[in-house]
Amino acid sequence: MATTDAATGERVQYQRFDRYHRLLHGVLMFSFLGLAFTGMPLLFNDAPWAVRLAALFGGGHGAGILHRIFASLLITCFVLHVWRLMHRLFVKKDLEVLWGPASMTPQPRDVAELVAHLRWFLRTGPQPRFDHFTYWEKFDYWAVFWGMGIIGGSGLVLWFPVFFSHILPGSWFNIALLVHGEEGLLAVGFIFTIHFFNSHLRPDKFPMDPVIFTGRVSEHEFKEERAAEYERLAATRELEEAEIGPAPDWVGGLAKVVATIAVTLGLVMVGLILYAVLFARI
C-alpha cells in the first residue's frame, strides 16, 4: 500500500463522501441551524433571551416565516436523499443500500460494536474495529430520519391545520404541537452536543473533523478509525478505486470557517437552552 502518490508525492486520501452527500449535509446544516434559531424562541418563550432572539428574525411573525422557509429547504433535502436511495435501490439494483457494511440498516454487528466500544471505554476490552458506518453514526442518521418524519410531519400539520382537520381531529394538533417542540428540543440538544462531540469535538478530532466538508479521509485516519473497512477494501481493488487527490485548498478553508460558525452557533444555542431550563423555568 503506497502512502504517497507516486506522481505528486502527496499523501493519499480516500473518498468517504461524494459531492452529493456533502452538498446535502451542507444544506441540512444550514436549514437545521435556521430551524433551531427561529424555533427555540417560541418553545422557550418565557426565557429572557427569547424575545430578543426572535427580534433578530423580525419577531414572532418574521421568525415564523423564516422557520417555514428553512423547513421547506430541509424537506427538499430529505426528499432528494430518499430519491437518491430509491434510485440506487430500484434503478441500479444496489442491494447494499439495504444490508451490509455500506448500509445504514442497523445490524447485529452494530450491537456487538456498541458493547465492545463500551467495554473499551471501561478498559475491559480491546477497541472495536469499525466498518463504513459505526453504530453512533447510524443512530445520528436514523435520529434525523425519525425527526424528519415526526418534526416534519407535525410541522406540516401545524402549518396547514385547516387542511389537516379533514384528515385528523383537531385534538391531534395539540399532540402535533407538543411533539414538534419536544422532538425539536431533542434534535437540537442531540446534534449540538452529542453529534458535535462524537464527530468534531472529541479529543482525537478536536476542533473539527473536516471529512463531511472535504469528503476525504487520510490513509492514517482510515486505518485507525475504520480498520475493518480498510482491510475489507484492501482485499479487493476497491481501495484503489476510493483513492482521491487532496481537496482543493479553498474547500479546506471554507470547511474550517463554516464548521467553526456552525459549531459556535450550536453551542450558543445549547447555552441558551440550558440557561432557560436551569434558571428561567425553575
Partner: peptide, 22 residues
Amino acid sequence: WASRAVKPGETRSSRPDDGPRS
C-alpha cells in the same frame, strides 16, 4: 468516550493500554 479518547498528537496504536485489537 471523552475520558478514554486519544489526546491530541497521540495515536491510538501508540497507546500502551489499548490492549490487543479485536
